[in-house]
Design a protein around this nucleic acid. Structure first.
Lengths: 200, 200
DNA sequence: GATAAAAAGCGAATATTATTCGGATTTGGT
DNA sequence: ACCAAATCCGAATAATATTCGCTTTTTATC
């Protein structure tokens, strides 16, 4: 089998087991060093069975962030609808991004340390999923300028680079060194400082 | 032989050839996918000879950024000495970082896309070399506060995260997508916007 | 509820590559 | 010119991702 939708019930369960096991192993050893044998053992199936669901080790690795990122974006849309200003929505997006990483550190290690900056990502779905992050921020920056919440002369791409880079870098140092020790407490001031940059 | 200083002249030359070839191949294929055979062919030597200079493929990969980063820091110290304000020195450091990447894109791909965020870096020298980047910035931020160039209430670690993250992210998108198209022209405004954040 | 086709599962090959080994060749000092 | 050390290389070795062919399980149909 390839990566088609499975027809049987057990199969869907198995595929999920593999993804869960893989997330843990990849986060621990990195994609390159991770062994298919370890993933299979952790999922409780035969190595060759993994290939019934995913064509290669990399495809397996890339599947992981796609799902949860989509979930994050959807949840954001839900919660953002209630907020009056673009500034509030932008703050929420950055905060949710950090919270999401804190709540799913294995997933975050895989995404921020291995996949996000990877040279190797050819697969369109992963690329799109990561690029959406930038598109969402740029769109909000444009909207805020348009609504007069901040200066219209602010370059949206440059500013998006600052916002994304800052949050990503905070998460990377947290993932690698657990600094800041309390990520949740540190996120608020970080977002505040970044938002302060938008003031006219 | 291990990684000791070579005693013979040809050896030093060869070691350099290997590093140059490896930089190109790693930048093109990524560390995990790069083949020792390709590096050997590009350097014009036998595969097994590479192991006379470097114990493993990763050690070879990690050697590359160490040298040039040290070179960047040294060059910065030189040029910074002439500048009167901390703000000028900080601007220079960020600008030099971007210029250095633009001038050595293969090296930069290896550093920013593969090594910097890597889970796998155990080797102390690489880690130190990368961490120095943060230490240099934090030190300047403290100095600037102390000299009254910006508010003393500015958290140096948080601000360093913003500066490093923003520059790194700008370089990453340039390396992956060649956007902004003219990195040199984009660096100035980026540094300006970041410095604007320091104003009291 | 018996049966056949499809799907899922697995152990044993296979293939690709990093790494090691042993001996041949080259170098630098005398 | 000669020796010891350094360098170099081709041919094993070892680790591990991926493929293959067969067995077991599931689902649909009567």
């Amino acid at each position: 089998m390839s990566t088609q939708e499975p027809k049987q019930q057990r199969s869907r369960q198995r595929k999920n087991d593999v993804l869960t096991a893989a997330t843990r192993v990849f986060a621990r050893d990195g994609i390159a060093k991770a062994k298919m044998a370890d993933i299979a053992k952790e999922a409780g199936i035969a190595v060759s069975s993994i290939y019934d669901y995913f064509p290669t080790k990399e495809a397996l690795a890339y599947e992981i962030p796609i799902q949860r990122l989509a979930q994050l974006y959807a949840e954001f849309e839900d919660r953002a609808a209630a907020l009056p200003t673009t500034r509030d929505r932008l703050s929420l997006f950055l905060t949710m991004t950090a919270d999401h990483a804190r709540a799913n550190p294995d997933w975050a290690r895989l995404l921020y340390l291995e996949i996000w900056p990877s040279v190797l990502i050819q697969e369109a779905r992963v690329r799109r999923s990561v690029d959406d992050f930038g598109r969402i921020i740029v769109a909000m920056l444009r909207e805020g300028s348009h609504r007069g919440e901040w200066s219209a002369s602010l370059d949206p791409h440059r500013t998006a680079t600052i916002l994304m880079g800052s949050i990503a870098h905070m998460l990377i140092t947290w993932l690698l060194y657990r600094r800041p020790a309390d990520l949740e407490a540190a996120t608020g001031p970080m977002v505040e400082q970044l938002m302060g940059m938008l003031e006219v």
